[in-house]
Design a protein around this nucleic acid. Structure first.
Lengths: 197, 197
DNA sequence: TGCTTGCGTACGTGATAACGTACGCTCGTA
DNA sequence: TACGAGCGTACGTTATCACGTACGCAAGCA
């Protein structure tokens, strides 16, 4: 009816380009994929939206996984967060702890990278800080400069510049800067726990 | 007819799991996605193979891109190219690229942190470098010092010091140091694709 | 010119995807 | 027990996907 360009998500154009790049005819790809040549033609021109079944077969004929084929036409495969354009935590007015999140706020993001700066004697875990982590998540922290103490589940571990620590992020924990004069900077990677089914 | 399990690529099961994780009913997702509840039910049970159109709408209702949704069920079937067994990469004798892996080789580790150093004009992806990443994985790179160009899926992105980029790590990609004089250092976080539940 | 070979696309038919409606089911609640 | 309210699924109809066939077209060769 009104399906003027509903199906045109760009996949068709991409398929045609890939097929051309492999110098295959519609019938060639038809034989490889098990999808009829007229069907391929319609899909390539965006006149119809194939089912996942046939789309998967088409991708296979192009020696791709369907997700790979589709991803080519989805923006967001590459996301750049400029140093000037960061999500920042609250300023370190009182706590002496400030941080910025380096990874974009995309769904499907499974690891979050953040940089934390601790003033002398400052401690993470103040009000406004990310309170806790999802069960099953793990955290890796790399000391960029200065010195940092990790207090995790009651135990205290002192880390020097360049040291790297990995621990279960769903345990109660916080970082401290034990120095009296020097700022400390650390990078934290929090990887989410696996989803339950 | 014979369509016993033709449509069962597992995506239905995955949709049902994701919907449950968000504690949504079929009608909830129906409203969000614009796909009827009975249709969703059939898709979830693998009784029918949705078109790319509706599959895309379903993914949107789950706040995912279709490629992300599909990728979750494809990783199990694919051969895994392990990045590296050793903790340290080869010395940068010729390529001008050396790296070290900062995270421990523990089972259950879902994010790997590594630091890469690129000599002037050096390029990653040489022989001995980790060739590619597991399907479904994503990579985040932070430029510690110098300047770096990311070439991902044919497109080139130039990053300055402090910039951070996130992209699908199973796309063909490599880093270059475009400078003639200065070394470049970058941190890379590779988060593995989700495994089957 | 005429024939052949290959390309991509219009056509008509059967299969099926997608919809709206309505049913059976398990809960809390009166 | 009765009764909504919520869930997921069976049913029948319509839209359309997917196929096989057949057509128009351009290029290579007698």
């Amino acid at each position: 009816m009104l399906a003027i360009e509903l199906a045109d998500s760009g996949v068709g154009t991409r398929i045609r380009a890939l097929r051309g790049a492999m110098s295959m005819s519609l019938r060639d790809l038809a034989e490889r994929s098990g999808v009829s040549a007229p069907m391929l033609s319609q899909v390539e021109r965006g006149e119809t939206s194939p089912t996942l079944q046939v789309a998967s077969r088409i991708a296979a004929g192009l020696e791709l996984r369907l997700s790979q084929l589709l991803r080519l036409d989805e923006d967001g495969a590459v996301t750049i967060v400029r140093s000037s354009d960061r999500r920042k935590g609250p300023s370190a007015a009182k706590s002496g702890h400030r941080y910025e999140i380096l990874t974009p706020p995309l769904p499907g993001q499974r690891a979050e990278l953040s940089r934390h700066t601790l003033a002398p004697r400052a401690v993470t875990g103040g009000p406004g800080d990310p309170p806790m982590h999802e069960p099953g998540s793990r955290e890796t922290a790399l000391v960029e400069s200065g010195s940092v103490a990790l207090v995790c589940d009651g135990e205290r571990h002192v880390l020097g510049e360049g040291d790297c620590v990995t621990f279960d992020a769903d345990l109660p924990h916080h970082f401290e800067n034990p120095a009296d004069n020097n700022e400390a900077v650390l990078l934290a990677v929090v990887s989410a726990g696996l989803r339950r089914s």
